Simulated scan of single mutants.
Amino acid sequence: MTSPDAPTTPAPGPGDPPRAPRPWAALTLVLVLLACGAGLLHRTQQLTGAPALRNHALTDTGATDRVIRDVTGALTQVFSYAPGDTAATRQAAGRLLAGKAARQYAALFGQVEQRAARQRLTLTTHVVRAGVTRLDARGAHLLVFLDQVAQRAGTPATTVAAQLSVVAERQDGTWRITDIRSR
């Protein structure tokens, strides 16, 4: 007696000819190949289209080196101060920061100036590594790793590492930082 779940057609034997492929399997394969081809074509367009071509971060080493040099120099100046010379840091921020970065800095630096004088705090910033992720004629996006060494009078120095996302704009031939975000 056969069960109701048993196949009604016998399995092919060793001498039987192979079964003809089912048309739906071939159609499915064709559709999958077409979808993969369309996806690859779209991705190729993204990588070679106009926005990708405008990103000079990897193709213009001179411009990339310049923005890295300008931005890392600016970060070193605006995030380094001594208790008796915070005015130089404030002036550097006025020259090197713009937009949102300048407003955020101004709001926080008043508190820092008071604390630096009262606690005799010196902060020295060293950029460890910086890379440009996007660069065009007007703006740049950078990822910056830095170490900050804080020294209070009479205490050992403390080093803290930081990672920043920085946006800079080219204004009158100079790169000015317009946004800084801690990562």
Rank of each mutant, 00 (worst) to 15 (best):
T2Q: 09
D5M: 11
D5N: 14
P7D: 10
A11Y: 11
P18D: 08
R19W: 09
A20F: 03
A20S: 03
R22I: 05
P23G: 08
W24G: 08
A25T: 07
L27Q: 05
T28P: 06
L29V: 15
L29Q: 10
V30S: 15
V30K: 09
L33F: 12
C36A: 15
A38Q: 14
A38C: 14
L41P: 08
H42L: 15
T44I: 14
T44F: 15
Q46P: 11
T48D: 09
T48Q: 14
L58I: 02
T61L: 14
G62E: 04
G62L: 12
R66F: 06
R69C: 05
D70F: 08
G73F: 02
A74C: 02
A74F: 02
L75F: 06
T76G: 12
Q77F: 04
Q77E: 06
S80W: 01
Y81R: 01
A82W: 01
G84P: 01
Q91H: 02
A92L: 00
G94E: 02
L97F: 00
A98I: 06
G99E: 06
A101Y: 02
A101G: 04
A102K: 07
A102G: 03
Q104H: 05
A106K: 01
A107I: 01
Q111T: 14
R115M: 09
R115F: 12
R118S: 11
R118G: 07
T124F: 08
T125R: 09
T125S: 06
R129C: 10
A130F: 03
A130V: 01
G131V: 10
D136C: 09
D136E: 12
A137T: 12
G139E: 08
G139Q: 13
H141A: 11
L142S: 07
L143Q: 11
L143V: 09
V144E: 05
L146M: 08
L146S: 10
T158H: 03
V160D: 11
S165M: 04
S165N: 07
A168T: 01
R170I: 11
Q171G: 04
T174P: 02
T178G: 09
R181Y: 02
R183N: 07
